[in-house]
């Protein structure tokens, strides 16, 4: 069920070609203005990879993650997820993919309020059609693995940030997806707790071969990843394996800049 660690010859898990995203907004005079956020992104991610995406605020990281997670649709360009052309999928099929193939971890944890940790973790199983009793059994097993079995009956507001994030990670893992998408998962956590969460990701990637794509602002968090992608104003300006990158070598080591950077509409 779980993918084996990376062998880049196989078909990629994620393949993006010439992906663009723009938003239409109304200005003060009621005129429609188009704000392009992502420009001709080309990206291939194989099973078992551990990718960190960095970039300044507003560079389009979350926008890209939302598209990768089938929560949003690109304006143009193509996106294949496990060989499926996402643009051709129905909303039911997309829901199914989000349920079975992708686990989300958010900066703000996004747990369901007034619901125990156990029930939170069980919800994706319910949507997968598993009975409530079985869902809870499996959810408890996952909480045990993330060291939270004693907090199973706690509600989110009775948990620390780190604990909430581990509940969220348990929820992301409960349907055994091949891909975890984490948008600034440590953004709301202190450095000690961040390290614990990152070790958990590292372990999941190493031991179970789960593909992880995470967005971060911190160099030390990005250092856990095996591959680093940098975005700037909607362009990929850096994409390199096994590098703990510094700002100085940014332009030198680019091997994934595509086409000519287009003018920013700002």
């Amino acid at each position: 069920m779980l993918p084996t660690p990376a062998h880049h010859s196989a078909t990629p898990l994620i393949k993006i070609e010439n992906l663009c995203k723009s938003y239409s907004l109304q200005d003060a005079n009621g005129k429609t203005i188009t704000n392009q956020v992502l420009f001709n992104i080309n990206l291939t991610i194989h099973q078992g990879e551990f990718v960190a995406i960095m970039g300044h605020s507003g560079s389009g990281k979350s926008t890209l993650m939302n598209i990768l997670g089938c929560l949003d649709t690109p304006t143009s360009g193509a996106y294949w997820l496990t060989e499926k052309n996402v643009a051709t999928l129905s909303s039911d099929e997309l829901a199914r993919i989000r349920n079975r193939n992708i686990g989300f971890v958010f900066q703000g944890f996004n747990l369901l309020k007034r619901m125990t940790a156990l029930d939170n973790v069980a919800v994706p199983l319910l949507y997968a059609g598993i009975s409530r009793a079985n869902s809870r059994k499996q959810a408890l097993e996952l909480l045990r693995r993330t060291g939270l079995e004693n907090f199973a009956m706690h509600q989110p507001n009775q948990l620390s940030g780190g604990q909430q994030q581990r509940v969220a990670i348990s929820r992301a893992l409960v349907n055994q997806p091949p891909l975890i998408l984490a948008d600034e998962p440590t953004g709301n956590l202190d450095s000690q707790t961040s390290r614990e969460i990152m070790s958990l990701f590292e372990q999941l990637n190493r031991d179970q071969g789960i593909t992880i794509v995470l967005v971060t602002h911190e160099d030390d968090i990005a250092a856990y990843a095996k591959r680093l992608i940098r975005l700037k104003d909607g362009h990929v300006i850096y994409d390199k394996n096994n590098a703990i990158e510094t700002t100085s070598n940014q332009s030198a080591s680019v091997h994934a800049i595509h086409d000519h950077p287009q003018s920013n509409t700002d």
């Binding site: 997670g69 829901a95 199914r96 369901l112 929820r171």
Partner: peptide
């Protein structure tokens, strides 16, 4: 959140 973790429109 429910949609992100797999709820379809019908659910």
């Amino acid at each position: 959140i429910r949609m992100a973790i797999g709820a379809n429109q019908r659910a």
